[in-house]
């Protein structure tokens, strides 16, 4: 059984007074196996973020369903969804979404505190993760005191600390400089090698070519997918570029 199963997902947005409708997703189906590092690519407006929001249960699909471990996440009751999200999913966002009012450590603790863990327990969980992410010495600082790369590491620590089944990352490198992007992607690869499943939405080719598999979305539909196999990053980079060029040119599917 795949870890994550997306079935015939459709999302139609209706403007407030029901006048115009916009079809964000027409029909998207794919699966993610445990331990996979999958990237979803597409141009702005292709429906990437909508897809991620549906997988994270931030939004309800017009049609279709999302199964995590065989369980439909949209059938979960509204008052249990937050706990479900906290226990099973980890999030990394483009703009980090750290709370200004918390120190880095408290930001990372947030999901555990909500889950009712004790302070000692949280500290035990945090120590190894902070070490891997290289943020042990900035834990007492506040988000405005550290760099973008460090903020994103903190956000990843927050996502990892609950030992989620899958990490959903929305443009995690979008707000970072090239140096920080590089080290972050390396980090993702390492975490992935350690067994963490990651689903990442991005339009950065550089980010995508670290993934084991790249899905392309165009106009709300799954357009194409590439497997890395044993290819090097550079080869992967070339293939992704070709695919994107073709999507932009509006051509037919090849291969």
């Amino acid at each position: 059984m795949p870890l994550l199963e997306v079935k015939r997902l459709k999302k139609v947005y209706t403007t407030r007074f029901g006048g115009n409708t916009v079809q964000a997703l027409t029909n998207v189906s794919f699966t993610v196996e445990k331990g996979e590092f999958t990237a979803i690519m597409g141009e702005s407006g292709s429906g990437k973020t909508t897809l991620l929001n549906l997988i994270a249960a931030f939004d309800k699909p017009t049609d279709g369903e999302v199964l995590l471990n065989g369980k439909s996440i949209h059938s979960i009751r509204e008052d249990e969804i937050a706990a479900f999200r906290r226990d099973h999913l980890g999030f990394v966002f483009q703009d980090f979404n750290l709370l200004d009012t918390f120190s880095i450590q408290d930001n990372i603790f947030l999901p555990l505190v909500l889950a009712g863990k004790s302070y000692e327990e949280m500290n035990r969980e945090l120590a190894p993760i902070a070490k891997i992410l290289g943020i042990s010495d900035i834990l007492s600082k506040f988000p405005y005191e550290v760099s973008g790369g460090q903020k994103q590491r903190a956000a990843i620590a927050r996502a990892l600390i609950t030992r989620p089944e899958i990490i959903l990352a929305d443009e995690p490198t979008g707000a970072l400089d090239s140096h920080a992007t590089e080290s972050l992607l390396k980090l993702f690869s390492e975490i992935n090698k350690a067994g963490q499943t990651i689903l990442m939405v991005t339009h950065s080719i550089k980010a995508a070519c670290h993934a084991g598999r790249v899905l392309f979305i165009k106009d709300g539909e799954l357009f194409h997918q590439l497997y890395r196999g044993s290819q090097l990053n550079a080869e992967m980079y070339q293939k992704i570029t070709d695919t994107l060029t073709m999507i932009a040119a509006g051509g037919e599917r090849f291969e």
């Binding site: 994270a56 906290r86 979404n97 947030l110």
Partner: peptide
């Protein structure tokens, strides 16, 4: 703040 907390797993 409200938005972030919701995304991180605090219920409404």
């Amino acid at each position: 703040r409200f938005n972030i907390m919701q995304k991180v797993g605090m219920s409404r």
